[in-house]
Write a protein that binds this DNA or RNA. Structure first.
Lengths: 180, 180
DNA sequence: GGCCGATTATATCGGGCTGATACATCGAAG
DNA sequence: CTTCGATGTATCAGCCCGATATAATCGGCC
């Protein structure tokens, strides 16, 4: 997930790890945040893999300005990102992954977008049915707080399914337009 | 989180790890699931800490029925659970923790309940404001998908804040009733 | 000119949790 | 009598978090 987000963001421009983390937070901070404790190790992993390189920082006015690193996407890194964009596995419709993938949705191939949205819908529908069953099953005997929580979750699921249906319909309309 | 949930569930009855995982899934599976990959290591951790013990399994009709383990809560385990119930740190109002804590809310002291609900409200309000700002800031230039996602997130946040307000009001009413 | 706090910047470590994978047993249905 | 789904325990690589440490830079204030 973090690898995906980093590669996606580095398409904009080369960046310091620090700035990257800030952009990460701005871009998808409402759904997912990443700590430095995973950012810096991941950056080193991406370096080793050759997806990114360290760019020379302006040595400045004389003495040691180093230890500041600017990371830049390589051609292989762009390929890697395209690969990740084209993959529509379960992680892409999980709670943690879905928001991140949506962030890069306009760069995602149309058929992959479709599979992700449908996967997500399946997932949320399952949750919705689970919650409906839980609420129906007990109705009286269960804990007040649990019931309230399930009620909130149920409504959220219902809304998200509707939201997904609209997105999916829109995608299909777009696709038909392109075909004609 | 898992430690908390295990100790909470073992109040019901001693259980196999397997059954524990099933109950875990039934009880809070709509919001949080735990894999065996964390369950078994955590059980061993709780054993070492003395919060739980292995109960002897019925040796059965002769040959080797072992390798099956039944875990039972100890007095120290109950104390530990009470300790965790009384703690209202940031993890209790995070997305991952809040649902789990709500599950055990009727066993949670009233003042702690209050602090958790208020912490959660603060958290969700922050998200709501962040999303409002993001939507207002760009309105035109931002990605269609991102805007849709933010819209969904905003509505979900608004609903949850309202939901929390009702719960909090109810808590306050209860508290006043008790005082009189 | 000098100080102070906020921001910029990098890094490590312990530990929680996941997903994949590997076993083995048991009851029931075919 | 075999196959299949449920029960049951376990490990491992790897991702990520939260806490923590360190230090340079920049702006503003006195």
């Amino acid at each position: 997930m973090l690898e995906f987000a980093i590669l996606g963001l580095l398409h904009e421009a080369p960046m310091h790890g620090y700035v990257l983390r800030k952009r990460l937070h701005e871009t998808l901070g409402m759904f997912r945040t990443f700590s430095y404790g995973s950012l810096y190790p991941t950056l080193r992993r991406l370096l080793r893999a050759g997806w990114i390189v360290e760019e020379a920082v302006d040595p400045g006015t004389g003495w040691n300005r180093r230890a500041k690193r600017v990371y830049k996407l390589t051609a292989e890194g762009k390929e890697r990102f395209a690969e990740l964009l084209a993959d529509a596995g379960p992680q892409t419709w999980d709670d943690e992954g879905f928001g991140v993938h949506l962030t890069f949705f306009s760069r995602t191939p149309a058929d992959v977008r479709m599979r992700i949205l449908e996967g997500r819908r399946r997932r949320v529908e399952e949750r919705r049915e689970g919650l409906r069953a839980a609420l129906a099953r007990a109705e009286e005997k269960i804990d007040r707080y649990t019931r309230e929580l399930h009620q909130l979750g149920l409504e959220a699921s219902e809304r998200e399914v509707r939201w997904l249906n609209e997105l999916i319909a829109h995608e299909q309309a777009e696709q038909n337009k392109t075909e004609n």
